[in-house]
Computed example of a mutant assay.
Amino acid sequence: MTTDRREAPHHNKITCYTDYRCRRPECVARYNAYNSPRARAKRAGTWDGLVEAAAVRKHILRLQDDCGVGPTAIAAASGISKQSVIEFINPQPGKNRGRRQRTSAETAAKILAVTPDGLIGLRVNAAGTRRRLQALVAAGWPLKHIAACSELKDASVGDFMRRNVVLLSTATKVARTYDALKDRKPIRHGVDRCQARRARDWAAREKWPTPDYWADRMDVIDDPEFEPLYGVTRRELVAQDANWVMRTTGVDRATAAQRLGVSKAYVEHAFRDHPEYALGTAA
């Protein structure tokens, strides 16, 4: 049986030594520099399984500068959480500590293995892309102006608002465009007043949150599990909740109202205003 030796795609990280068995002198030296402190600590009985985070932090910052990506993309490419990536580069407010100084060897290896080439073609959840585009429309930016700023095709921008996944490169372009346009007034930057009004009216009909809404929620704008309750009235929420209670427990409207802490009449009015949630009899 023969074993093929794969050629390492690069020679600037320890993975060429560990994963591809590269034995170039400079690569061996790089691995030894990484491994020596760990080996000494193991011999001394002081090894706790953690490594210094400086190299990881430097690598993350280099990826951000060279590729224009953020913690979300790096987390997706490395398979670790976004919060873990953030802790390497930003002090953690409320935790009385600065940036992460040590990390597990496994986490370090995963992040150091992320390369610019590896980011090309990476697909990410489209929630953040979709929400940023919707928010810009809510601010009065027509799709064609968003497309021109992001260097994307007009038709593609509309398509991205319906997708579940997008290329990382697309998500990055949209995120940059959002940061560039979110605080600008469209009519001061070449958008006709009628076009801006039509964009805002469209967003209002769809109940798309504005940039002001997301300003305090940027930590969850990319989270597909987060449900923005923008433009949702209390009566609509009661209609939704009553629908869920009745469907899952089989109770009538009066019992559902009691469980929700409102009157039966309130549930009736909620269902009348939002018939898409109406369920069951009035008994």
Rank of each mutant, 00 (worst) to 15 (best):
T72Q: 11
A113H: 04
V157I: 02
A108G: 09
K173R: 15
I120N: 08
T170Y: 03
D154H: 15
S78V: 04
G98R: 07
L136G: 02
H145D: 12
R99V: 12
P93H: 06
A148V: 07
S156L: 15
G158W: 11
I146W: 03
A127Y: 09
A139D: 03
S169Y: 15
V85S: 01
A155C: 05
I146K: 01
T103L: 02
V114P: 01
V137Y: 02
T170C: 11
R97A: 03
K82W: 09
V166C: 12
T107K: 01
P116K: 05
V157S: 03
R123G: 00
G128S: 10
V69E: 11
R99H: 01
A126H: 01
I111A: 06
L143T: 06
T72N: 08
G121E: 14
G70P: 03
L133K: 07
D159A: 11
E87V: 00
D117M: 13
D159M: 13
T129A: 10
V165W: 10
V69T: 11
N96Y: 05
A175E: 13
L167V: 04
R132H: 11
L143V: 08
D154E: 14
A75C: 02
R163T: 13
L168K: 01
L112P: 08
G79K: 07
A75L: 07
P71E: 05
Q92G: 04
A126L: 00
Q92F: 03
S104K: 01
A148W: 06
R130L: 02
F88M: 09
A75R: 04
K95F: 13
A77E: 11
G121V: 04
T115D: 13
F88Q: 05
R100K: 13
I74L: 05
L152N: 13
V166E: 14
L136W: 07
A77Q: 00
N90K: 13
G158I: 09
R102D: 00
V114N: 07
